[in-house]
Amino acid sequence: MAAMTVAAGRTGGARAQARAGYLFSGLYTVLLVGFGLVPAGYAVYLAFKGETGGFTLDHFVQVAQDFRYVETFQHVATYTVAFLVPSLVISIGFALLLQPRRAAVASWFRFLYYLPQALTGAAGVIVWVFMLTPAVSPVRPLLTAAGYDNLFEVLSPANLPVVLAIIAVWTSANGILLMYAALSSIPVEVTEAARLDGANSWQTAIHVKLPMIRKWVAYTVILNVAASTQLFVEPQLIAGATGGGVGENWSPLQLAYTFAYTYADFASAAALSLQLLVISVLAAVLIIKRTSLFRMEI
């Protein structure tokens, strides 16, 4: 009797679990369809629909002819490199340093790294604009020593991608947490074996740990490339802070916003957004192929 009750309880538990699973994924699916797939589908429809109906590529021609089109992509390309490389190096590096520490120490540092992340991108920009404005910055002597007397000098066209990348790196501490989790999933036996074979910690990190978290790195790169192509809030806020002097229509998404809300040309905005989608998807496919991200390990 007792055994039967346990069995029944177990099935009941499994059923409840399954229900919860359906509930969560159901909600997710509803949101995905409503706020992801349907708008994306509508964007495709808008981008290829002619003014009088029928298929057209005019909207793509229209955006490509815009005088800002090429440079917005150049900006984002520079930004992506300036953001991606340091953010990977920093997140993997910090995670490697942190992982062998005692749990209590590690969790304190994880909390510290996470703090900047707690600021949303927008608040992060405000903090950085404040930091980089020589007149009010607490690090004014540093800025003036570097030859920067005002915000326009700090945010010169050459500096802007780097400044935006610094802000992004600063708020991308989730990378550290992710890498830390990945490193923690490496079985102790493996690192132990490496140690017994005479590998020092540097060699263990490079030759043992890194290859084992390759897929996590790939996953992070895919997410970060997608985030970079969608750069919007940060330059938009900087444009606000400089009276439009710096950062106006700086990224493709800002240009798309201008097409939609300034020119009321939603079709061209959709055409430009689709190009960003294609770039993100291509980058993802390339990374997945190169790292065999989805291949099951045996």
């Binding site: 003014e51 009088t52 005019d58 021609v61 002819q65 938009q236 009276g243 439009g244 106006e248 020119y263």
Partner: peptide, 25 residues
């Protein structure tokens, strides 16, 4: 900061369209 498109008396979208392939309508 995006600013507002203006024109005192209309039709600039028309003008803009005329310069592109989508002229007709």
């Amino acid at each position: 900061m995006t600013t507002i498109l203006t024109n005192v008396r209309a039709e600039r979208l028309g003008a803009r369209r005329r310069r592109t392939a989508a002229a007709a309508a």
